[in-house]
């Protein structure tokens, strides 16, 4: 390993992480502004033009706050948990192709790696709840973990359905194979279920039971303040942006522009536009739907979504095999 390659990989990491943090900041502002106009309020409008710098003011306020480590907690795990969440949340971005060949790790098992990393990320939440030594945190983290484990089954099966069409785990191959048609057209019901699954995976409304404010104060984040809280916050919104990107890659053709052989800036803009559309759906759903009860959440996954997805995972390989697409 030479000095040059080390500098190269550091630069690659900075090139990905910098814009990612910026996009997380603007997702929070977009959420507050869009929810504001949907509920006939203004939303944040004081810091910067139209409140555009609100997120940076909030981040600054959080960072200068005092770090409180509650007594009777497991200090090491208490600090380690948000780090696990954030590191896993940032690590998955190495596998995303932003354009033709614009990817840090063009790995033949890309989507398997994404599933593996996201399954490790669940430990951040469960350890945070246990290490906080607080009933609210603990119940919140147990709910979050049960929800993540259940919805990961559907999440993985839906990815498998896309893999049946592609015949490869590589994300670039998945995008390039959608040149003829985006997978949302043949797999429309599956795409809708994927949207539901990623809403539950990222603990968003209407599935935000882990941090339902009315019952559990803030769920597993109750005891966290200052730096660790920022880590959790970044990991959560990073996961939302990542899952939107992943669903635009799986179903909306990733960086492809329909009808045009595109290169360079167009590819990145195309991926960004699709991702922003799905992020808007996230916020729209949060403003529109009430929160589910916990038993409704569990029955909707195990007794309604899972049978449908399993039925599709038998049907679709049959159709693909019958027409010998791959």
């Amino acid at each position: 390993m030479t000095i040059n390659s080390t500098i190269n990989s550091l630069l690659e990491a900075l090139i990905v992480i910098g814009p990612l943090l910026g996009s997380i900041a603007y997702v929070t502002i977009a959420e507050r502004k869009i929810m504001g106009s949907m509920q006939r309020r203004i939303g944040p409008n004081k810091v910067g033009y139209y409140g555009l710098l609100q997120a940076f003011a909030d981040a600054l306020k959080l960072l200068v706050k005092e770090l409180v480590l509650p007594s009777n907690t497991d200090k090491i795990l208490f600090v380690l948990a948000p780090m696990i969440s954030l590191v896993c949340g940032l690590l998955v971005w190495t596998l995303i192709p932003y354009g033709k060949g614009l990817v840090i790790a063009d790995f033949s098992l890309g989507i398997v790696t994404i599933l593996a990393i996201s399954s490790v990320a669940a430990y951040g939440i469960i350890l945070a709840g246990w290490a906080s030594n607080n009933k609210y945190s603990f119940i919140g983290s147990l709910r979050a973990t049960a929800q993540l484990i259940s919805y990961e089954v559907v999440f993985g099966l839906i990815i498998l359905l896309v893999i049946f069409f592609v015949g490869s785990f590589n994300l670039t191959t998945i995008i390039e194979s959608q040149k003829a048609i985006w997978y949302i057209v043949p797999l429309f019901p599956i795409a809708l279920m994927f949207l539901i699954a990623i809403l539950a995976e990222s603990n968003r409304a209407p599935f935000d039971l882990p941090e339902s404010e009315s019952e559990l104060t803030a769920g597993f984040m109750t005891e966290y303040s200052a730096f660790p809280f920022v880590f959790f916050f970044l990991a959560e919104y990073g996961a939302i942006v990542f899952l939107s990107t992943l669903s635009s890659i799986l179903f909306l053709g990733g960086y492809l522009v329909p009808g045009i052989e595109s290169n360079g800036l167009m590819t990145g803009l195309s991926l960004g536009f699709k991702t922003s559309f799905i992020l808007f759906l996230f916020i729209w759903i949060r403003a529109s739907f009430p929160r589910l009860r916990y038993d409704q959440l569990m029955s909707s996954i195990w007794s309604k979504m899972l049978p449908i997805v399993i039925a599709f995972s038998i049907l679709i390989p049959c159709i693909v095999k019958a027409f010998e697409i791959y």
Partner: peptide, 9 residues
């Protein structure tokens, strides 16, 4: 990777 997914996840 299957080790991570099955055993850890």
């Amino acid at each position: 990777l299957a080790y991570i997914m099955v055993y850890i996840g």
